[in-house]
Design a protein around this nucleic acid. Structure first.
Lengths: 158, 158
DNA sequence: GCTATTCAGGACATTTAGTATCCAGGTTAT
DNA sequence: ATAACCTGGATACTAAATGTCCTGAATAGC
């Protein structure tokens, strides 16, 4: 899985501490010492997916496009890593002796179906966790986290 | 995910129709028109993992090393694709302002934990499906499958 | 023993995906 | 007007997946 997924999730949690405030890619990158230009690519992907909204120009930057409770971890995985399953059925049964060229083996092959079922439980689990859930867990463990994040980002001189 | 996982699973189902009989990599590859040398690599991995047993020399080949009910889809995924999670926590929190160098963020980071939890449901699902389960499903739908597989493999002239 | 068959595994080549940088162009606050 | 900032394409580098080839070891049949 793309490493950008991790960056995107942490960045979204950070942005959740600053609702309605635009944060530049440069600041988000500096927070974890990430390559700015490359993180920017991930942020653009989140923006295209409607997870973040971006504003150009001075005082511009990124912010959550909707309530953190409505942004699931799955949303971020799909935005950064794509919607494809990890296991891709290439329908090798079509090359076998009992093959029917008309059959959609992605749907009928029992191996494909078992792998797909596992993938669905994975996605269901990720869909059930929101950025707000993560933020709340962090808040419980580190009540100072939001303020710390805000002051640290504010102190990053552009 | 490695495409060899799909090949390995189908090959194991085929081998489950021929208990106690060695089948060569060449024959297993010819069954689905797969590259012999490369499939052989996957079969070797299954052999190293104790899923298949191999015998050298004429009349040699591969066979299931244990009862198909004791071979889960997860066993095969791990043997071919490795045991690593799809999401790899790189502990970017260590580079953040509230970092504690002593902390194991793979275990304490809530994002890491959420991703890990999803991965576990995925693995639990795959661990609950055996090659025998798949074979049984195929048998129910296509009662002639075992015999067809046997005769087809037998007719593949070396 | 000799030979043919087959697995074991290392070396290598090719292709594809992930990682990363740079720049030219458009937007906007001051 | 200028500087800050996002957008997206072009490009380069690296790592992983895919695939081939070859040598060596084991073994069945003669």
């Amino acid at each position: 899985m793309n490493e950008g997924v991790e960056w995107a999730m942490h960045s979204c949690v950070n942005l959740s501490w600053l609702p309605g405030q635009a944060v530049t890619a440069k600041h988000l990158a500096a927070f974890y010492d990430l390559p700015t230009a490359y993180l920017n690519k991930q942020l653009q992907a989140l923006s295209r997916a409607g997870i973040l909204s971006s504003t150009s120009g001075p005082k511009g930057g990124f912010q959550l496009a909707r309530d953190a409770r409505k942004i699931s971890l799955l949303d971020i995985v799909v935005a950064i890593d794509g919607a494809d399953d990890a296991f891709r059925c290439t329908e090798i049964l079509k090359a076998g002796p009992a093959a029917n060229p008309k059959t959609d083996y992605v749907k009928t092959c029992h191996i494909s179906r078992a792998m797909r079922a596992a993938e669905l439980t994975y996605r269901r689990e990720l869909a059930g966790q929101s950025i707000a859930d993560i933020a709340e867990q962090v808040l419980t463990e580190f009540p100072a986290a939001p303020q710390n994040t805000r002051t640290h980002l504010a102190n990053l001189k552009s």
